[in-house]
């Protein structure tokens, strides 16, 4: 009897889950159409597009910091290298797809260069080193060798053309970014459920134990960093074609902090945490922007929210939810007199 009712409740749960997913996918697909009917729909769609880009960037950061335990306060550096590399290559006449691939190789190489020494650093030393990387790259963009980045003037970016299709409207970019974000999350999931990904997470939780499991800790720290950098760089490329203008100012240290805050607020070390964080922080910023005379208080409110979050939900929204779920699960198992095997 109990078995059957359990079965029924689990199948009902499955139905809920499936219908939830179907609904989410439908909404996601129809969103541009819905926005078309709203008064400031174009603005909403634009904000959503930025949320997608920031989701990819903070997901990338999450691979390095949330999952592999290496802090990175220079995320904007990889973001900007990805953006500038694609734009410069495209401007030089390289086909778009090829420039994206080449640019990602550039980001990977740059990530590798910083990862090799960084893999030896811990805690605040790593925080300092990554901050320095961020600053150095930003300065290089401002006073670039040969002026290839057009220095402080920045660069205007032509609309993205892929397979003969021009991604000019917010709606077309929306679908592109939706697919890219889904692919990035899927990739992150696949990465984490592989031998390589698990080894990266293991080095976060215990360097010693990871070593005794046959994991070359340094090697996996480098892998996590490179994968992370490529994802952040990829987000940078998408950002360039969404923003249509890039300059050193767009990639200032504030962006690094923003990616970090998104990851922390949503829940570092969780798959959907960065997405949640990107949604929350972008919305908070946009809402605050709308309030008259909020300028001076915007950063303050932002900081205050983060402070509260760190105090009461150190694992972020997503972490707090899964924590609650497991606690409930354990209580249920113990209440069932289940073999708690009390120590």
């Amino acid at each position: 009897m109990e078995e059957r009712s359990k079965e029924r409740s689990s199948s009902r749960k499955n139905i809920y889950r499936i219908s939830g997913i179907v609904l989410a996918v439908l909404i996601a697909l129809l969103l541009p159409v819905i926005c078309g009917f709203l008064e400031s729909g174009a603005y909403y769609l634009n904000v959503i597009n930025y949320i997608f880009v920031y989701t990819i960037a903070s997901t990338g950061l999450n691979v390095m910091t949330g999952y592999s335990g290496q802090i990175n306060l220079g995320g904007a550096a990889y973001f900007s290298v990805g953006a500038y590399a694609v734009v410069i290559l495209c401007n030089a006449g390289v086909p778009t797809l090829l420039s994206v691939v080449l640019a990602m190789l550039v980001v990977a190489f740059f990530g590798f260069l910083t990862a090799v020494p960084a893999a030896k650093l811990k805690y605040h030393f790593l925080a300092l080193a990554t901050t320095a990387v961020g600053e150095v790259v930003n300065n290089l963009l401002t006073v670039s060798p040969g002026g290839i980045t057009n220095d402080t003037h920045g660069m205007f970016v032509k609309a993205l053309v892929l397979f003969g299709f021009k991604f000019k409207s917010d709606a077309s970019l929306y679908y592109l970014l939706l697919i890219m974000t889904a692919l990035c999350l899927l990739f992150t999931w696949a990465f984490l459920h592989s031998r390589t990904g698990r080894a990266c997470v293991a080095t976060r939780d215990s360097v010693d134990a990871a070593g005794s499991c046959g994991i070359d800790v340094r090697q996996y720290k480098i892998i996590a960093t490179v994968v992370s950098c490529v994802m952040i760089g990829f987000a940078g490329f998408l950002f360039a074609y969404l923003n249509r203008y890039i300059s050193p100012d767009t990639f200032a240290a504030g962006k690094s902090t923003m990616f970090m805050s998104m990851m922390m607020l949503g829940g570092s070390g969780t798959l959907f945490g960065p997405f949640l964080g990107a949604v929350l922080i972008t919305l908070i910023m946009e809402l605050l922007r709308g309030i008259q005379g909020s300028g001076p208080y915007m950063q303050l409110t932002y900081g205050f929210i983060l402070l509260i979050e760190m105090m009461f939900m150190p694992q972020g929204v997503s972490g707090a939810i899964s924590d609650y779920k497991y606690k409930k699960d354990r209580r249920r198992m113990e209440a069932a007199g289940g073999d708690g095997k009390d120590a």
């Binding site: 698990r198 997470v201 293991a202 939780d205 215990s206 134990a209 990871a210």
Partner: peptide, 14 residues
């Protein structure tokens, strides 16, 4: 010295 943030089975898989 466990990988305390990972699930029990992931610990064994590592």
């Amino acid at each position: 010295k466990l990988f305390s943030g990972m699930s029990v089975i992931d610990n064994v898989l590592v």
